[in-house]
Write a protein that binds this DNA or RNA. Structure first.
Length: 346
DNA sequence: ACAATTTGACCATG
DNA sequence: CATGGTCAAATTGT
């Protein structure tokens, strides 16, 4: 009887360790492709998992002579054992070192995977900070030029944060954003609950839009492209707080002009928040919001994150958010939309 | 008028 | 000297 209980605990312990290992693997995969917030979330999960394991070990009566080596059958680290030198510890240490290094350098890179490879891109993603473009360079060997951005409050508040945005050569659906320096300005702790926050579709080249009909199509594609990127980026925020459930879609400037009225203004007509006169934003159907929101409460593993991505993808397939369709058809149906501010106030 | 972007020139680095 | 990063005048938009 006692042996059965012991065995059960043993199995539980093994499962915890396996889970920790899997989370570590996920983190490893996410470090390149995902935001810091996701990394932090996964690290917290790892730490929590191992902490539970240690707690269990504290109450473990006697492991001497009994399977001291844990292996989930997928373990290449054959030295895994109940010691401080086990691979689980190494994973944590390595990840902590990574963070320390990254923060000490104050330079880090994020890659954003887009849901589509259509259209061109030459801008930046919204990351809740306001940036001002100060340069663009063609990089040797790179297909796409690199955009240089600095914090809008560089002069006013002396904020030295900068970032570089470049589309990946290998995978055009990936945007590489290199951040340098931390924000010291008042927007250093952007309030996501201040929905909708300013979202820059900096990639929209207003000059080209004005001068070149052909480019107009490209730019609308970029808008779609960027919006979808936004969806993919924001999915990482879904795990944080309730205020973060909903992605916010708004353009910082009415960049896309049609003959009489900008398509964006047309599209956003009726739900432009009064406090952000310059920013129009896209409404989400309740289904879409619910779809996103539902994923918020059950994030526990990569599979769950994948579910979020799937949900997000389904959002892009909806009539409102698939701008590839919307922008080309131009027949916006605002009935699908609603004022998100009202949604929040209710 | 002011703000933001573009783009050629300039500078630092290896 | 080539390259990447930044500056700043010109341009464009609000």
């Amino acid at each position: 009887m006692e042996k059965t209980t012991s065995k059960r605990k043993h199995v539980s312990l093994i499962n915890e360790l396996i889970q920790g290992k899997e989370l570590a693997k996920q983190l490893s995969n996410h470090i390149v492709l995902c935001s810091n917030e996701t990394n932090e979330f996964l690290i917290d999960k790892i730490i929590s998992t191992y902490q539970k394991t240690l707690t269990m070990l504290d109450h473990w009566p006697n492991l001497e002579g009994e399977n001291k080596t844990i292996d989930d059958g997928n373990n290449r680290d054959s030295h895994c054992s109940f010691t401080n030198e086990s691979p689980k510890s190494e994973v944590i240490i390595k990840n902590k070192a990574l963070f320390k290094k990254r923060k000490s350098m104050d330079t880090w890179k994020e890659q954003v995977k887009f849901g589509t490879n259509t259209g061109l891109f030459e801008g930046s993603l919204d990351d809740e900070y306001s940036w001002r473009k100060y340069g663009q360079k063609d990089i040797l060997g790179a297909k796409f030029s690199r955009g240089y951005y600095r914090c809008t409050h560089r002069n006013g508040q002396g904020c030295l944060a900068t970032k570089q945005v470049q589309r990946s050569d290998e995978d055009p659906t990936i945007i590489e954003v290199t951040y340098k320096g931390r924000h010291t300005c008042s927007q250093s702790k952007p309030l996501k609950k201040d929905f909708p926050s300013k979202l820059n579709i900096i990639g929209l080249d207003k000059n080209k839009l004005h001068n070149d009909k052909k480019n107009q199509l490209q730019q609308t594609q970029e808008a779609s492209f960027t919006l979808k990127a936004e969806l993919d980026v924001k999915r990482m925020d879904l795990e944080e707080t309730k205020e973060d459930i909903f992605p916010w879609f708004c353009f910082s400037s009415p960049s896309i002009e049609s003959e009489n009225e900008t398509m964006m203004e047309s599209f956003c007509h009726g739900f432009i928040p009064p406090e952000t006169s310059e920013a129009s934003f896209f409404g989400l159907s309740e289904y879409q919001l619910g779809c996103i929101g539902l994923c918020q409460n059950v994030q526990t593993s990569e599979s769950d994150i994948t579910e979020t991505v799937s949900a997000t993808t389904s959002v892009t397939n909806s009539p409102i958010l698939d701008l590839d369709i919307l922008l080309h058809r131009g027949d916006f149906d605002t009935d699908f939309s609603f004022n998100i501010s009202e949604y929040f106030s209710s």
